[in-house]
């Protein structure tokens, strides 16, 4: 099997165990396109646990990335913090209490559908069921 090498990180974040094919979605949610740092996306890497997985490596940029968003998308994703070439922390991801401009309210009756430049804000309304509700219309966010 051919292997593809991407050099190790000196400082930054490695997002591991991303379900295969989902890395671009994460890239979009984290708005990595707007960052000035190096980002490597590895798709369909071999994984003993998952068969195939995606990995994202972000050089530096730790303070620029809202890792809590990953907790909202999929808290099974592993988040390794790298310093001086070593993993210094495996960060436990939690569901964030608030999401701003990460997901959009789909309720056509919500004020966010017409008000200019109004941020789309969601709150974690139920920690048990991980239900997020729009701050304005309180509609439940559905992933469908």
């Amino acid at each position: 099997m051919l292997s593809l090498n991407i050099s190790g990180l000196e400082n930054g974040v490695v997002l591991d165990h991303i379900p295969a094919g989902k890395s671009m979605e994460i890239y979009k949610y984290l708005d990595l396109g707007s960052l000035d740092c190096q980002v490597a996306i590895i798709k369909n890497a071999s994984s003993k646990k998952m068969g195939k997985k995606d990995i994202i490596k972000i050089s530096g940029g730790l303070d620029q990335v809202d890792l809590d968003i990953i907790g909202f998308i999929n808290h099974h994703i592993t988040c390794n913090i790298i310093k001086d070439g070593h993993v210094v922390e495996k960060r436990q991801l939690h569901h964030p209490k608030k999401l701003t401009n990460v997901i959009r309210c789909k309720n056509p009756r919500c004020i966010t559908s017409i008000e200019q430049e109004l941020p789309h804000v969601f709150f974690l309304a139920d920690t048990k069921t991980k239900t997020y509700r729009c701050k304005y219309c309180e509609e439940k966010y559905s992933f469908k």
Partner: peptide, 28 residues
């Protein structure tokens, strides 16, 4: 926008009662 309208209303009135077909407009 609702945000602009309320700023203007605030110059003329002491209190505002708002009905709006869009949900969350009074919060904005």
């Amino acid at each position: 926008s609702v945000s602009d309208t309320i700023r203007m209303i605030g110059c003329y009135a002491d209190i505002c009662a708002m009905r709006h077909p869009k949900e969350g407009a009074p919060l904005v």
